[in-house]
Write a protein that binds this DNA or RNA. Structure first.
Lengths: 129, 129
DNA sequence: TCCCACACGAGAGTGAAGAATCACTATCAT
DNA sequence: ATGATAGTGATTCTTCACTCTCGTGTGGGA
């Protein structure tokens, strides 16, 4: 568990706060390297794990993708992945009645929903081509 | 692409038809070995890939899990994963209006939904403890 | 029935995510 | 300001899912 307030850990926290969306370890490395030049991937893994352990980050698992991480404590929500750039965004809200889809005998405790399509940035680009 | 009708390929197809739910490569190996004793994992991978290529199987991706496979050609549906035994089951139907969750500027093309909880078998076991 | 290309099984190899190691560096209580 | 020690960065190691290799066996056309 990392407890000191290092430049690296700050840069990693800043990356999440400025991105405002779930980030993969590779994205964290790219973004945080803008602030701390020689930042290594091992430090990203260490600090992300540490931030998850202390509850500041939550893990976001999407189908067929390595885990992403987002700032924790937010209301129940789901995610959107752009099929063009691969970036993941937050959605707000949810739909009631999802547990009705389960057949009798099944107990539903939680659910995950992911929408796929084009993000605003990629949709604009495609229209311009 | 495997074109011959071998005992191994039949056993693998049978496993999917008898299970009636998405199977991982490990589950396919277990189930098909009941019919063809010395079945090897490489043969499972070869045949599953072949069955996907010829359109008989479809790939099912769940968050944080290696891919599973199911018989293709079914109506739009989603999946349920038991948090106790890890097995995946089919759900029937869907909910309208999911694309409403996306903010303006996002184009929604498809979605994935996964419910988590207890399957009938595991729920009964737990109650019995 | 014969034959051989194709498929099989066992095990080694590969690639990627992430953890461990280690010499060096930076933080922070004193 | 100092120094104990936690953290860093480069690298190696581990793990796991999956693929390849190669010698053996078999499906199915002639």
């Amino acid at each position: 568990m990392i407890t000191r307030n290092t430049r690296q850990k700050s840069a990693i926290r800043d990356a999440f706060e400025e991105a405002g969306r779930p980030l993969s370890t590779g994205e964290v490395l790219d973004l945080a390297q803008n602030k701390v030049g020689g930042l290594g991937i091992a430090t990203v893994y260490r600090n992300v794990k540490s931030l998850v352990d202390e509850g500041w980050l939550a893990t976001v698992e999407l189908p067929g993708e390595p885990p992403r991480y987002e700032i924790s404590g937010k209301d129940h929500h789901h995610h959107f992945q752009c099929e063009s750039c691969g970036r993941v965004f937050e959605l707000h809200g949810c739909l009631p009645g999802l547990e009705k889809l389960a057949a009798s005998g099944f107990t539903v405790k939680r659910h995950e929903l992911v929408l796929y399509g084009g993000c605003p940035e990629c949709s604009v680009k495609r229209r311009a081509n």
